[in-house]
């Protein structure tokens, strides 16, 4: 009995100590997969000497942060999708950050009005079309996906995924609820199969001949094209990139962002801001392109290399906050049409 008590007390003490030791490092709550942010953090540590610790979870991090309250060890929050960034902001989990560097590097429409969150990279939701079965200018607009001409030829991941929900929200913003719902109905009627898998799986379906047109995020193309896996390279080889809505008077392609902010109860705000600044500087901004084929948010950084070869495209200038605001309505619409 005594031995047990001693062991458990020792365990307790050890675990608590482990907790308090974390205070000196920069603690990151991340909704991005660790293998994607590791190169950035390594470069950051090399440059500043500040060590980082990461907690990755795809779901529930905002709730964890909230219930931890002022005891939270988190310093920085990193996530993808504007609606998710807004969730942190709406729950009051992000601190207002005054940084001339961040304001210089990130255009106003890509950060929150109060400078609570900052977009750090961009991606566009694009159309992947079959090289063999779809002509060059056969489909040019997102709206075309609802055209009965494409019946049984379209693949997407489930509508309730954040990427599709954000796209849905942007369509509501541009066309109003009624027209947006008509569009969604048309899209669902055209689907070649039940929505499933991630964006990569949609390109695979094009390669397999299951469908001819798919909705994907731009970086998936780069990741597949340069994959170590020969199969994935073959999938990428079967598709063309179409940036939608590019015509003269059209609004441009829908974009979404990855981004982050400083946790409201961070005990290490200085280092936290340093990390965000580091991520917005030229080296990191280029790294986003190299690591994951994402576009820079910093206007001073030119797109080059592989990304440049995909061609330049016009971006939808809708303030991204609007997409977050319409997220709930978009999800309800997705439920109604069964996307």
């Amino acid at each position: 009995m005594k031995l047990k008590t001693i062991i458990s007390l020792g365990l307790w003490a050890g675990l608590c100590m482990g907790q308090s030791l974390q205070a000196q490092d920069l603690n990151i709550y991340s909704q991005r997969e660790p293998f994607l942010i590791e190169p950035f953090l390594k470069a950051f540590t090399d440059q500043t000497g500040i060590k980082t610790k990461v907690l990755y979870s795809e779901k529930g991090l905002a709730q964890r942060l909230k219930s931890e309250g002022r005891n939270s060890p988190a310093d920085v929050v990193l996530t993808v999708d504007i609606a998710r960034l807004s969730v942190y902001d709406d729950m009051g989990l992000l601190s207002k950050t005054a940084s001339a560097t961040l304001e210089k590097n990130i255009p106003a429409h890509l950060r929150s009005p109060e400078n609570t969150w900052f977009a750090l990279s961009k991606r566009s939701r694009i159309l992947a079309t079959s090289k063999d079965r779809v002509g060059a200018a056969e489909i040019t607009r997102i709206e075309d996906l609802a055209d009965p001409k494409w019946k049984g030829r379209i693949c997407t991941r489930p509508g309730s995924h954040v990427y599709n929900r954000a796209l849905m929200a942007s369509i509501i913003a541009h066309h109003g609820s009624e027209a947006a719902e008509e569009w969604a109905k048309g899209l669902v009627a055209n689907l070649a199969r039940k929505p499933q898998g991630n964006d990569r799986a949609q390109v695979k379906a094009i390669y397999e001949g299951v469908c001819d047109v798919a909705l994907i995020n731009s970086y998936y193309y780069g990741n597949m094209k340069f994959s170590e896996d020969a199969e994935q390279r073959a999938w990428a080889d079967a598709m063309n990139i179409v940036f939608p809505n590019q015509e003269e008077n059209d609004r441009g392609a829908h974009i979404n962002v990855s981004g982050g902010g400083v946790a409201i109860h961070s005990k290490n705000k200085e280092a936290a801001i340093k990390l965000l600044e580091f991520l917005s500087e030229a080296t990191s901004q280029k790294l986003y392109g190299e690591v994951n084929y994402e576009y820079p948010v910093n206007p001073a950084v030119l797109v080059d290399g592989e990304l440049a070869s995909w061609g330049t495209f016009k971006e939808d200038q809708l303030p991204i906050q609007k997409i977050a605001d319409l997220s709930r309505e978009a999800q309800m619409m997705i439920d109604r049409v069964g996307w």
């Binding site: 608590c16 907790q19 205070a23 529930g60 219930s67 931890e68 005891n71 939270s72 060890p73």
Partner: peptide, 28 residues
């Protein structure tokens, strides 16, 4: 369930009135 656990532990931590976490975010 994790959300429920989190709420409970954070509540316990709140009672303990410490600045660094006691329960939440540990192996406990």
């Amino acid at each position: 369930l994790a959300l429920g656990v989190l709420t409970c532990l954070s509540f316990a931590d709140g009672l303990l009135e410490r600045t660094s976490l006691y329960f939440a975010g540990t192996l406990w």
